[in-house]
């Protein structure tokens, strides 16, 4: 019978591999478009000049970030080029200190510390009005304090590095992640 011949199964293996790879490539092209800053899901870097919030969208049935009016970070209005450079620096801070081996970003990383996807919008930081929030977070990153069970170590961030990391977190909080994390900030909302 043909099923007893390995060649039959080999043909199946080759066909399924090629077909699925082709589908993946097509989807990847489409997805990369959506996740390029300015695409349908990821905002331009200059979004850090704006107010950002996160709320339930009943049409989509999930939580969605909303971009509001101007709310400057560090009292400076960044052009897209400046913002890109700052956030690029923020990424290098995040990689060089290996934040991801303690924290998760979009839920990816380590489980020792809180998820940072919407850290910018955390109720703890929301206590600081307007432009004060960025300063408070930068101060924390330079000299972390303990709120919970275990504390974040001092990773010797310079002021520039801390501000770049904060800008990164603000930009990231405006990425549309299909509703993750669900209900962020609602349970603690006052």
């Amino acid at each position: 019978m043909y099923t007893r011949d390995p060649a039959f199964w080999r043909a199946g293996a080759i066909a399924s591999t090629l077909f699925m790879s082709a589908v993946l490539v097509i989807l990847a092209v489409n997805s990369l478009d959506a996740i390029t800053p300015g695409g349908s899901h990821v905002p331009l870097y200059d979004v850090i000049n704006n107010q950002i919030s996160y709320s339930y969208d009943s049409a989509r049935g999930e939580y969605v970030p909303k971009i509001g009016g101007q709310e400057l970070l560090f009292n400076h209005e960044y052009s897209e080029t400046e913002a890109k450079a700052l956030i690029g620096k923020g990424k290098m801070v995040i990689q060089s200190r290996a934040c991801m081996d303690c924290h998760t970003f979009f839920g990816n990383g380590a489980y020792y510390a809180p998820d940072l996807t919407r850290a910018w919008l955390d109720p703890v930081w929301a206590e600081y009005p307007g432009t004060k929030r960025g300063d408070a977070m930068a101060a924390f990153l330079m000299h972390p304090f303990r709120l919970g069970y275990h504390e974040m170590p001092n990773l010797h961030l310079s002021r520039d590095e801390a501000q770049a990391a904060v800008a990164y977190l603000k930009w990231m909080s405006a990425v549309d992640t299909n509703g993750f994390p669900n209900g962020f900030g609602v349970a603690q909302a006052k």
Binding site: V23, S31, A34, H41, F106, G179
Partner: peptide, 22 residues
């Protein structure tokens, strides 16, 4: 091979739920 790659290549999508992808 047929089944692992037939399911696993697009199974990659289980990591694309929440990272900003469509």
């Amino acid at each position: 091979v047929a089944l692992v790659l037939g399911t696993g290549i697009l199974g990659l999508g289980h990591h694309y739920f929440w990272i900003g992808t469509p």
